[in-house]
Nucleic acid binder design. Structure first.
Lengths: 352, 352
DNA sequence: TTGTAAGCGTTATCAT
DNA sequence: ATGATAACGCTTACAA
């Protein structure tokens, strides 16, 4: 402890404390002596004691759905990296879409007085959270919160993915390529799922002669995509828009046992841009989300809020449509192809 | 803070403290009053203050290579789950194989007085770590530490994967299927890599007529496996044992651009058993590692050590050979097939 | 430039 | 059954 260091250096605790944090009013000699003493004693400051006094912990809390999920792993990596770079340690907890677990995690963060808390894909209600934590200390990252659809996003403290632009770009791209009879395969009806589905419906509804049939792999179906694959094989849509890449890849795999060949009989697009999508055969066309950057930005918002005393405004992260091999140009050209263009808000990228 | 709760309940701080932690000598009436006061005031205990007194933080530290990596993600998920179940919060930091980052992480854990620290795939020397932390508080999970090969594993505080049994099982399986001219593709010469390579060499060396050629995708090659793929296409081995699944899948993908077809011209086996291996086409034969369980066990060892005052003995986690479609039986049977059997220590599993 | 002393929010040890 | 008080290790006015 500090007292030992001070004693060894033959000075008072306060001087030792100051010397170790490079307070300008400490003499070089003293400073060197303190440093030497600290080093030889193997002194390691006690963060708990420090923060008890300082009222700042240099701790951030990150709540994720599941660390084993590729998207969340990326988010976590970006978050940790940015936090470490700013001198923050990170508590990471998983919520698994379980409100109880999420609340326990939140509670843990609060007990440890985290300077900032990021809640990714959480299912708990933001207003419940705001009752327990200052708005300056929380950021919601792509939360599963119905209010986003009904009332739109709050003006501050939210970090979102541009679901609409992403799906819109994907659908328009398919339309440009000549696809008309489409399907959307959802995954359980989360807010994001509903948003993407609604966008697909809307965009396709505006194209004459185009149709969209909606499926839901649901929570149960997620484990067994073959049921959806069979349904698709029966309905034979020309293109399938999947809720995310995981679902898309599982579906492509399941479709191998059916009469539908990807991409010759049916095109497929995913969402997220997970690494796997760029390595699968055929390469998956997908809407890439900057997951790592999302994590970094969350840290940025929290740190800025702590510094400035104002929570940063809500941000919508841009996505980019990455063209793979699952969406070839339709061989049978119907003549209406053309410059539909990519939806505003999403970039178009060729290759993975 | 507690003082407010005490005041609201009309009793002393000590009583309030006791009431909240269900001290048996507090009356029901008082307890109820305190609870009510705490709830209405939204009291959240301060972990820093608590641990300052208690000398226990209920914090564990986990150092990983990279959160975005599937294997580490699984490990992290298992670790977090087990920790949360035991009431511990987890600091997670990434080392990225950089000794400096690893030391910074360690330092952070120490400053926060983590009750236990798990170092996964770290490159820093265990003896350096033991100089800073009590052996009771650290567990090394599959560290990249040469001493493991030279001197064997320390008797306590290590959690290892059975590299030898895994590779041995894989190679014997290939031999049983009739493969003789084999290749091992390493990835940069980590301890684990060297261990697997040495095992492959040894096992194959004991089979008459069998040979092993060693390649190293290295750190640079990892990003561009096509170079290795081309080399393999030139040498045309019958089977390739890859350091891990990531490499195996990348290699299989790269091989598509060569004259070698997987699995008809060349068999491939991986290591780790990542989710992706069970979803690829063809399904990858791999040595599955219980990554989630590894994380859980690390917590188990740390918590037990804190409880018992003795670090648990080193454990070697069993692996299982999972048969996919990348290792079909050799069409040209050389007659020496037979009951080589699977190496002791590894289980054989059919299907993914 | 350095030292003194109070206090951060809890808990544990004594008393009562 | 409950209360007063010291202590945990550090920071920071305020003095000197």
């Amino acid at each position: 402890m500090l007292a030992d260091v001070a004693r060894a250096a033959g000075i008072s605790e306060s001087t030792a404390s100051r010397a170790l944090k490079d307070d300008p009013r400490i003499g070089e000699t003293t400073r060197a002596a303190v440093r030497a003493a600290a080093a030889s004693l193997g002194y390691v400051p006690n963060a708990a004691a420090r923060s008890l006094r300082a009222k700042r912990t240099q701790i951030l809390g990150l709540l994720l759905d599941d660390l084993a999920d590729p998207v969340h792993g990326q988010l976590a990596a970006g978050f940790e990296e940015a936090a470490a770079a700013q001198g923050y340690a990170v508590f990471m907890m998983t919520g698994l879409h379980d409100p109880e677990r999420e609340n326990r995690a939140l509670r843990t963060f609060l007990e440890h007085r985290a300077d900032g808390i990021a809640l990714a894909s959480c299912v708990i209600d933001p207003s419940d959270v705001y009752e327990q934590v200052s708005r300056l200390r929380v950021v919601f990252v792509q939360p599963d919160y119905p209010g986003l659809i009904d009332d739109g996003a709050p003006s501050h403290g939210f970090l979102l993915i541009d679901d609409a632009a992403g799906v819109s770009a994907a659908v328009r791209h398919l339309v440009d390529l000549g696809y008309r009879r489409m399907a959307y395969v959802g995954a359980g009806g989360t807010t994001s799922d509903r948003m993407r589905r609604a966008t697909a419906t809307a965009v396709i509804g505006a194209v004459s002669g185009a149709s969209l049939r909606v499926y839901d792999a649901g929570l149960a179906g997620w484990r067994d995509p073959s049921m959806v694959a069979n349904a698709l094989a029966a309905d034979r849509p020309e293109a399938v828009i999947c809720y995310d890449d995981k679902l898309a890849l599982a579906l492509i795999d399941a479709l191998r046992l059916t009469s539908l060949d990807v991409p010759n009989d049916v095109a497929v697009v995913g969402f997220d841009g997970i690494v796997q999508a760029g390595r699968s055969r055929p390469r998956l066309t997908t809407v890439a989300v900057p997951s790592v950057e999302l994590g970094r930005r969350a840290v940025g918002m929290l740190v800025a809020a702590a510094r400035d005393g104002t929570m940063a405004p809500t941000e919508v992260m841009p996505v980019r449509l990455v063209l793979g091999e699952t969406t070839p140009s339709r061989s049978v050209d119907d003549g209406t192809d053309g410059a539909t263009g990519v939806a505003a808000g999403a970039t178009l990228v060729h290759g993975a």
